[in-house]
Design a binder for these strands. Sequence first.
DNA 1: ACTCCTCTTGATAGATCGCTCTAGCGTGAC
DNA 2: GTCACGCTAGAGCGATCTATCAAGAGGAGT
Lengths: 192, 192
Amino acid sequence: MAASKSPTRRRILDTGARLFRRNGYTGTGLKQITGEAGAPFGSLYHFFPGGKRELAAEIIRTEGAGYARTFDVVRAEDAVAGLRAWFAGAAEVLEAGDYADACPIAAIALEVASTDDDLRQATAEVFTDWIEQAAARFTEAGIAPARARTLAVSAIASLEGAFVLARALRSPEPVLSAGEIVVAAVERELAS
Amino acid sequence: MAASKSPTRRRILDTGARLFRRNGYTGTGLKQITGEAGAPFGSLYHFFPGGKRELAAEIIRTEGAGYARTFDVVRAEDAVAGLRAWFAGAAEVLEAGDYADACPIAAIALEVASTDDDLRQATAEVFTDWIEQAAARFTEAGIAPARARTLAVSAIASLEGAFVLARALRSPEPVLSAGEIVVAAVERELAS
DNA sequence: ACTCCTCTTGATAGATCGCTCTAGCGTGAC
DNA sequence: GTCACGCTAGAGCGATCTATCAAGAGGAGT
């Protein structure tokens, strides 16, 4: 456990995350991961004895935790501006990456939801964490907890769905439109 | 073209749609489809000479057209109530189906967006159609076209993303929360 | 120098993938 | 009766998948 320092391990995780994001879980081969990561195939099973599922579980957790930090732009002093920046930033990153890199775990989540309960649960934990983090930001900004949670769930769902549409349409419009509606909802809630 | 009447062809399409929805595109095997459909393997290539991609393209189109009809509950006389019923109905169906059957093409859309441009385009056409249909309903209800489109995109994105969260969390909450925000946005637009 | 131990390395197994191919069944036309 | 044709039927091909395995390189501790 002490050695999460291995650069090979890191490269496998990063490459795996990128490929899962773009090609999905079943759509990504382990040989492809080690190949693109420049890692020997055996090393994958050295670091992840549980194979593909263990690798995916770790990717879900680390990528989930990483993405949670993007909520930091939503500050209590001006939650509306922060939220606006959150959506705008997502749209920018998506466009800059040629619509390949959206949510790090949505593709996995949809694929495993009905086929692998362990991985499904891992994605559920990430989403739950995101919801709680976002809700906390909204309550800090002065919104009642129950409403804050509804808004948090809605904000995350909107972005996730907007990613699906944006990748298919190759356009940032869905992300911007979804952001507009969610921002307005939060704005209205703060005004009341 | 005249013979889209073959029951075997229908069963292949229906079974394929169900499996793609639950297990994704690469996660579903052709042998699995014909097996569960009770169809001989050779029949699949008889009806779909283009193989898996042609089958998927047809499923995307027919399922997309079918789902577009769910917008019929949004009527001009009471668009708000209709939209509310749309989200509530989605939540009910999802729960009744043990969170297996959500959007018929989202799983495919995410998987092929970066790997197969033909199929990506097929999903894009479906989403575009949905957006236009929903926007038309909103304009009929009295919303200015530009705003109607933003709301339409947002409504569809919200539901798509809510499906992702709902399947992972095995809870209808995201669908209901997302619906609440979108309904409020439409309500407010109609009041102004 | 010798022993551990982490990590590297790739060959290989066994299953499954999408797909092709040939053969045969059944029904309607003539 | 028999020919044509839509459809059934599934064996099998090459490729690729996940996973296992045995062997060795390299470095730290003694």
